[in-house]
């Protein structure tokens, strides 16, 4: 087994990324550093969409295996995060299409059991209300919020992912937040 553990302890900066990506194309150990950097944002995003640990793990696995296999085709243009999330969304899409029957059953069961698929139980009354308001946003708006506040993508990364201008994405998110805030007042 090739050792990832040594790599984990080495911090990575944005400046390192192009070199890392080039090196990772032929070296599982280097890919491990990208994995360590991006695993949790991808997993958290998928979990927030799928609402289920098992499915989130499954689609996260598919995402990183696909990314690893497709990495030789990736040409670094400073859009790695967007590229990775595009794969994650594509895998999630496949998952929904392949398992729609089961997924919808699961969702129905979770809802009937009182579990909230947006995340862990929140006891704070204000936060409960906020979540309720977020859930009433349309799917695209919810996705924007998730990308920004669950996956912690920058506006530039979101813009790359969504094929929009950075300032337009930022404006949309800020307007959404303003709307949420006004609905909370």
């Amino acid at each position: 087994m090739i050792g990832y553990k040594a790599a984990i302890t080495t911090p990575m900066t944005h400046d390192d990324l192009p070199d890392l990506i080039t090196a990772a194309k032929g070296d599982p150990a280097t890919f491990g550093r990208l994995y360590d950097r991006y695993l949790q944002p991808v997993y958290r995003y998928l979990y927030s969409r799928l609402g289920n640990v098992h499915e989130a793990e499954d689609v996260t696995s598919q995402t990183f295996i696909a990314a690893y296999e497709a990495l030789p085709k990736y040409r670094e243009q400073g859009q790695f995060m967007a590229w990775l999330f595009r794969i994650a969304r594509s895998k999630m899409n496949d998952h929904f299409r392949r398992n729609r029957y089961e997924v919808e059953l699961d969702a129905a069961e979770r809802i009937s059991a009182g579990e909230d698929v947006l995340g862990e139980l929140v006891h704070d009354e204000e936060l409960v209300r906020l979540r309720s308001v977020i859930k009433n946003l349309n799917p695209e708006e919810q996705d924007l919020i998730r990308l920004r506040y669950v996956a912690d993508l920058s506006f530039a990364e979101m813009a790359d992912l969504l094929g929009r201008r950075e300032d337009a994405v930022k404006k949309t998110v800020y307007r959404l937040l303003a709307r949420l805030k006004s609905q909370m007042e």
Partner: peptide, 8 residues
């Protein structure tokens, strides 16, 4: 916080 989900 409202959208908090666990890490993997």
């Amino acid at each position: 916080k409202a959208l908090d989900v666990p890490n993997a």
